[in-house]
């Protein structure tokens, strides 16, 4: 492909297909580790088998636990989904801010990202709920959503920034040179490519947020983990309760990570996003 030349210039090292890689990279199953005994299959179907077998063989307490905790799924998913939506909005603006030519916008966005990424999520949750509690007067769920959105907004910002920067400058120039308006160039050339680049990392953030949402159980939010705690503390079946909780989280995250991996694979194979 593009070979360097003696009179090479600033903009010719465009990679043929931009990809970015922002992930802690744990869960996403790799394609080449396929087969029936892939680690994903073992974990996923193993967890499901246990979730079926345990209540079958010892209904007390497993069936009771299984009847009690899924109420928390609603809180877990609403906190996750609402926070993802807000964090995408925050992330889009902060990400655009990070590549803004205006120094002060750029500075604000960068400081936001630096601060948020430097403070553990648990501390941020405490801060918004307890430290700012008297000021904000927020209930558990809104406080949780606010904290998670602000926190993940900073990570989303980095994804948007990298996604936009991954599109070579020559793409916009070629579109403009063909007579396209800037708006059309963005809509038909830049955004479709950006989406294809950022969707997989956004999927990863979704999974990470789903897991981190268990932190909100300390803010009196009745999520999955909290329900497990409630059951455990009244029945004293700690081992059984937390085993079920762990298995449910495992099934969910493994399921979504397979989904993200499939999406990544499809996008890699050029299938047009639109």
């Amino acid at each position: 492909m593009a070979k360097s030349s003696p009179n090479s210039e600033r903009d010719h090292k465009d990679p043929p297909r931009p990809t970015i890689n922002i992930t802690d990279g744990t869960l996403i199953p790799l394609k080449d580790e396929g087969g029936l005994l892939s680690s994903w299959n073992i974990s996923f179907f193993g967890a499901i088998a246990l979730l079926i077998a345990l209540p079958l063989f010892s209904p007390d307490p497993y069936l009771r636990i299984l009847a009690f905790v899924p109420d928390g799924l609603f809180a877990t998913f609403s906190v996750t989904l609402i926070s993802i939506c807000f964090s995408l909005v925050i992330g889009l603006f902060a990400g655009l801010g990070r590549i803004s030519q205006r120094a002060w916008i750029n500075r604000i966005a960068t400081v936001y990202v630096e601060i948020i990424r430097g403070i553990p999520l648990l501390v941020q949750l405490f801060y918004i709920y307890y430290a700012l509690g008297p000021l904000l007067k927020l209930q558990g769920p809104p406080a949780a959503i606010l904290a998670m959105s602000i926190c993940y907004g900073a990570y989303m910002a980095e994804i948007f920034r990298a996604g936009i920067q991954a599109i070579p400058k020559g793409q916009m120039e070629a579109a403009l040179a063909l007579g396209l308006s800037r708006g059309n160039a963005l809509r038909k050339i830049i955004i479709p490519q950006t989406i294809r680049v950022i969707l997989p990392p956004i999927g990863n953030e979704f999974i990470a947020l789903l897991k981190d949402s268990s932190l909100v159980s300390i803010l009196a939010v009745s999520d999955l983990l909290r329900r497990g705690r409630e059951y455990a503390s009244t029945s004293f079946r700690y081992f059984e309760s937390y085993t079920v909780i762990a298995l449910i989280y495992l099934v969910m995250t493994l399921f979504f990570s397979r989904l993200v991996a499939a999406m990544e694979e499809r996008l890699r194979h050029r299938g047009n996003v639109h």
Partner: peptide, 17 residues
């Protein structure tokens, strides 16, 4: 720009099309 065609060193084809 409609009347001026341009060809770049790095081709700049649209990879998603």
């Amino acid at each position: 720009r409609q009347e001026v065609g341009m060809v770049f060193q790095s081709f700049n084809l649209f990879p998603h099309l």
